[in-house]
Design a protein around this nucleic acid. Structure first.
Lengths: 244, 244
DNA sequence: ACCTGAACACCGTTCAAGT
DNA sequence: ACCTGAACACCGTTCAAGT
């Protein structure tokens, strides 16, 4: 294809699918904060109002974008135990999300599941149920997993190393800052140090996100398995809020 | 105080504290989506630009609002084992958040921790460390907890019963909808049924949020304790992605 | 019947002109 | 030196006027 791209896009008639794909591409390329209806329309060589033929409003656009991402999650693997199968599926969801940095934030902001999302959730719930977990336990399990079923967790803070040139090197200031951190927040500092074998950083940086995700995922899956084997029921509300 | 409130507010000079408290009150009362700089200024009987004397921009306003909420979290209880102490502190954080429905969303959107937030995290990390967990394990523990350290989890969808009058009763349509759900998403439906002993609902409604939160929290805390007792190290990366 | 320009009712923030 | 009105550069969406 040597045809001018904008020109080509202008010729192809708009469709919901083309709108959604363009929106995903725009968000991937320039960030979700610069995705506006006006912006997207311009990218498609179209007047803003033309988009409203294919999506009712911006919320529906975002729903559709999430559907595109969920559509990239692989199907369940067959022929293993439920725990491995669930584990692999969720790690596949994680892979899908990694290609779209905006996706987890947008998913969080959705208020009602789309049919595509419901189909994914139904299939995942089915993996627990056919694996032998009770409907009761599965319900609590899904809540405990939260957004993890889609391959992400709410990390407390964005730990991407900001390449802000305003706070450049100046080793003296950095050392002073570090000393202040270490005295004011000794445990935070120690924890950051414990993780900083791979990156220069002050807080929370340079740790292996994939490892952290799998650590928590496995802890939860192991816990679910243990409860299942014990024949746990939500009637077993034996836990008080005190006892060791 | 019988003085007219707006008049009183107009007399009291602005301060960062008064701006933040007004912002929290406004968000509590009318929702975070209607909190704008212009709106807040009006509430304070002040021109929008006056706010910029006390907060650099809207991001800093939101940071400050989170600080107000974090300030409401109770101090650690003394004289118990680390697990109970952590449990109680996190449930106290949850109580603080329950009074400010917007808080979890705003916390998620923060990109850098404030000193107030760092102080809270430091104190919580300290509870694990003085309880005997290694710096290494504590690091992974904090990641596994994610936003749960502040008393909330990312629930997959907003399950508050929308009192939208447009989709009022009409039991026939509702029954048809239910049949469609049950055939298209059998496991989702079953799970919703399993939880719906207390509320009329289609999906995800009517379950005990507090119970779900504690279920996951205890599962994680129990898991952490088990790892600690086993002398776990992150060098033990024994888990493959397959084996049962 | 379809499409779209202009307009509406908002934003956060800058900046220069006022006191 | 301090304060602030007007303006800038945006939003999502409505609606009436064009073809």
């Amino acid at each position: 294809m040597v045809t001018d791209q904008t020109e080509t896009l202008r010729r192809v008639p708009l469709s919901r699918d083309r709108v959604l794909r363009a929106a995903v591409a725009l968000a991937d390329g320039t960030g979700i904060e610069s995705l506006s209806m006006r912006n997207l329309a311009q990218e498609l060589g179209v007047v803003p109002m033309a988009l409203y033929k294919h999506v009712a409003n911006k919320e529906e656009l975002l729903d559709g974008m999430v559907d595109v991402v969920v559509g990239e999650i692989g199907p369940p693997v067959l022929g293993t135990d439920w725990k491995s199968a669930v584990r692999q599926r969720i790690l596949s969801a994680r892979q899908a999300l990694l290609g779209h940095p905006w996706a987890s934030r947008v998913i969080e902001s959705r208020t009602t599941p789309t049919p595509v999302m419901l189909a994914y959730l139904d299939s995942l719930i089915g993996m627990f149920r056919t694996g032998g977990l009770s409907a009761d336990l599965t319900h609590h399990v899904m809540h405990a997993m939260g957004s993890r079923v889609l391959g992400f967790t709410q990390e407390m803070f964005d730990d991407s190393p900001s390449d802000d040139p305003s706070q450049s090197v100046d080793p003296d200031a950095q050392a002073a800052m570090f000393r202040e951190m270490a005295t004011k927040y000794p445990y935070v500092t120690e924890m950051a140090m414990a993780a900083a074998h791979e990156d220069e950083s002050i807080v929370g940086q340079g740790c292996d996100d994939q490892f952290e995700f799998e650590f928590a995922l496995d802890l939860l899956l192991d816990g679910f398995e243990r409860l299942q084997q014990q024949g746990w029921t939500s009637a077993d509300r034996s836990r008080g809020d005190g006892g060791a």
